[in-house]
Design a protein around this nucleic acid. Structure first.
Lengths: 198, 198
DNA sequence: TGGACTCTAGACCGACTGGTCTATAGAGTT
DNA sequence: AACTCTATAGACCAGTCGGTCTAGAGTCCA
């Protein structure tokens, strides 16, 4: 039942398997045995690389997901002159991924964010810092394009909110429409607030 | 460990307990025993009222949650002249609930939406129909206030997306700021698109 | 050749999972 | 009082959960 790239080091295969599980079913939705099967790894290996077990693996996976999103976002913001264009590309990428997985793979951060409780401090902190960093990137980009500080903050938070909510709606609907409409509304809003170029 | 209102009929206590569990930890995050304990009900009673077990109870809970949201939304849209004001009140209510539960109780629909897979057809359908109905209400309200059909649809979807995403961000952050900022951005956007009153 | 160390491997464990089953309490009807 | 039907109650079950533990494979250095 090994689905992960067998060439990856074991530790990375574990993280990849956890990421996939978080996208599809959430932290509590997958069992350790199923997860290890899809990583093609026996049990001992998990506790060798992650002494803290499932929870520690989840934290590592969340960290990887955040790093990936930040890197992707930075690349798009660097490539596109206007933040609105970068946003459009960002949403487009998410749509492609969702469609390619037949509406099964959403955002790995969202599931565990909603499942986590106050006592899961490590996960909550990683998630909070991650979302804050993403908002920060978006806000800074808009600041650079003439948006006032207060408005840039509002818009950045709105963008992240809408991104997660649109993925959620599209997933249950089994159609991309919610993402299309959210993206369109968001892009024209950002475009209206930023200077034509830079 | 019974937390639910003991005066409620057993069936309603079960639904209430499931709703609370969905808000806090999600469908897979709570066990049947814990759920029954918090409902103050023995096992047999669950399978008497819901022969389909946990899954059927979850569908019923989702249905109740959707009905509740629609009723609340209708009331707000009827009470406020402008959809922007209704939206502001709606977001404000969600903020109050989240804060009162110390950032533990979010939206019960979001968790199970992200945990559900394609084969959970009953839940997916209930959720998809529910979100569509909410979008429909919002869209209709904006149409009545002079927004064009296409834009009203976009804005309604954006509002639902942002609502869910803002709750998610506020939950992990342990602060209301993400909701405040999302709400502010959304309200001023809607206000700009609607006629001053009606 | 023989440690020393990292990593892989999976048998095994108690606790708990969702679910079934039988017993019975109570209300309504005759 | 006897019968019926709905609802409550919890013992019980096989399967799975996350986690521990011991054994061995592979690699590097002496």
């Amino acid at each position: 039942m090994s689905t992960a790239d067998a060439n990856l080091p074991t530790r990375d295969r574990l993280i990849a398997a956890m990421l996939d599980a978080l996208r599809r079913r959430g932290y509590y939705g997958i069992g350790l045995n199923e997860l290890l099967a899809s990583a093609g790894a026996p049990k001992g290996v998990l506790y060798h690389h992650f002494p803290g077990g499932k929870a520690e693996l989840a934290v590592a996976a969340v960290q990887v997901a955040i790093d990936g999103m930040l890197a992707g976002l930075d690349k798009l913001l660097a490539r596109h002159a206007n933040p609105a264009d970068a946003l459009e590309a960002w949403m487009g990428g998410a749509q492609k991924l969702l469609l390619a997985s037949e509406f099964e793979r959403g955002c790995p951060l969202a599931t565990i964010a909603l499942e986590s409780a106050r006592e899961d401090a490590a996960i909550r902190e990683a998630l909070a810092a991650g979302f804050a960093a993403i908002r920060e990137r978006l806000s800074a980009a808009m600041l650079r394009h003439g948006v006032s500080d207060a408005i840039a903050n509002q818009l950045a938070t709105l963008v992240v909110s809408a991104y997660e909510g649109a993925l959620l709606q599209a997933r249950v609907a089994g159609r991309l429409d919610p993402m299309h409409e959210t993206s369109a509304a968001l892009v024209s809003l950002i475009r209206a607030h930023t200077r034509p170029s830079s």
